[in-house]
């Protein structure tokens, strides 16, 4: 008895205007179609298509040995994915919400991250863990968190976050192709925002470890990733109206952090603001600030500033916009760095 699905499924081509959720769906579909060893695992990802419908239709087309509704046990999802990867499969796990990843934290940090190292390279673990993350969707507690830095702090994991549908489409396929485990943080507040996606694009041409200047500018570098890239771009528009030129760098990856691209930008602008939803304390912004200070000390006109969440549990939905790095708070930081 073989359980490998014999089904084939149509893969769309051409350039389409898609929301990010559908772009990821298209990337998953293409990966499933291209490699029999790719499989999806998670809670409610089968007939329901996932609570955000990211896996919509994939169960119908690829069957229940390749699109697997798992028991409600996150450690079990990642732990069995490790075993499947050891057997040659490429599991893509969905953690339903950011706040529910913690039962799997042990498997991710003590097992998944370390096995390549412990085996001196004899074992590789091509496991992708997809995590809808971040707030601004008016959700109840545990559904709006940004735990990415906990994983970036763990050697052995790659941690990435797309900011547009086009990048989501190429990056998810690159993540699945990676021999290293990848934490793939999907900005859930951007799931429904549409963008042009070239469905014939190769898996991510930039790889999973390069930042990208998404808007050139001359006065301030604003560094963002995932959901805050759009906020940074809006800030750049608003600041331009007032005569301040913002360069926006989309980190794309927070492990590894592409210091070179950020530093190259800050050497030109002399100012840097980092924006993320995750709490500022010990966050990506702190690391960027430290690295920029080391690399660009003589180019800096002002201290690196950080805009992000406060040191508190994620607040109630009715007040989440007081917590999140809003357009105004980004502009405030830009003003402060300009006025230094």
């Amino acid at each position: 008895m073989t359980m490998t699905s014999e089904r084939t499924a149509p893969v769309a081509t051409g350039v389409q205007r898609l929301p990010m959720a559908k772009a990821i769906n298209a990337g998953l579909r293409r990966a499933l179609a291209e490699d029999d060893h790719v499989m999806l695992m998670g809670e409610d990802i089968g007939r329901l298509g996932g609570v955000f419908r990211v896996t919509d239709g994939l169960h119908a087309d690829f069957g229940d040995t390749r699109v697997v509704d798992t028991p409600l046990a996150e450690s079990g999802i990642v732990g069995t994915a490790i075993g499947l990867a050891l057997r040659g499969y490429r599991p893509v796990c969905e953690i339903q919400f950011d706040g529910f990843i913690f039962p799997a934290f042990d498997q991710i940090t003590t097992q998944l991250a370390k096995m390549h190292y412990r085996s001196r390279g004899r074992l590789t673990l091509p496991v992708v863990i997809r995590v809808p993350f971040g707030g601004a969707i008016g959700a109840i507690e545990h559904h709006s968190e940004s735990p990415e830095v906990l994983f970036a702090h763990t050697a052995g994991l790659r941690v990435v976050s797309p900011s547009t549908p086009a990048e989501a489409y190429t990056m998810i396929r690159q993540a699945i192709a990676s021999p290293d485990p990848v934490l793939f943080f999907e900005p859930k507040s951007r799931y429904w925002e549409k963008g042009e996606v070239d469905l014939d694009a190769p898996a991510d041409p930039l790889g999973l470890d390069k930042a990208r200047v998404v808007r050139p500018g001359t006065d301030v570098t604003v560094v963002a990733y995932g959901p805050t890239v759009a906020t940074a771009l809006k800030a750049a528009d608003a600041a331009a109206a007032e005569g301040t030129s913002i360069e926006v760098v989309d980190l794309r990856a927070i492990s590894p952090l592409d210091v070179a691209t950020v530093a190259e930008s800050v050497r030109r602008t002399g100012r840097c603001v980092v924006v993320h939803e995750a709490p500022v304390l010990y966050g990506v912004g702190a690391e960027v600030a430290a690295r920029v200070t080391e690399e660009c000390f003589y180019s800096l006109e002002a201290p690196v500033l950080r805009v992000g969440g406060f040191h508190m549990p994620y607040p109630v939905a009715k007040l989440e916009h007081e917590y999140l790095p809003s357009l105004d708070r980004v502009l405030d930081a830009v003003d402060r760095t300009m006025g230094f």
Partner: peptide, 12 residues
């Protein structure tokens, strides 16, 4: 859990 996942791979 790794053993269980591995066995699921053997099954596939």
């Amino acid at each position: 859990l790794h053993a269980t996942g591995y066995a699921m791979g053997v099954q596939r």
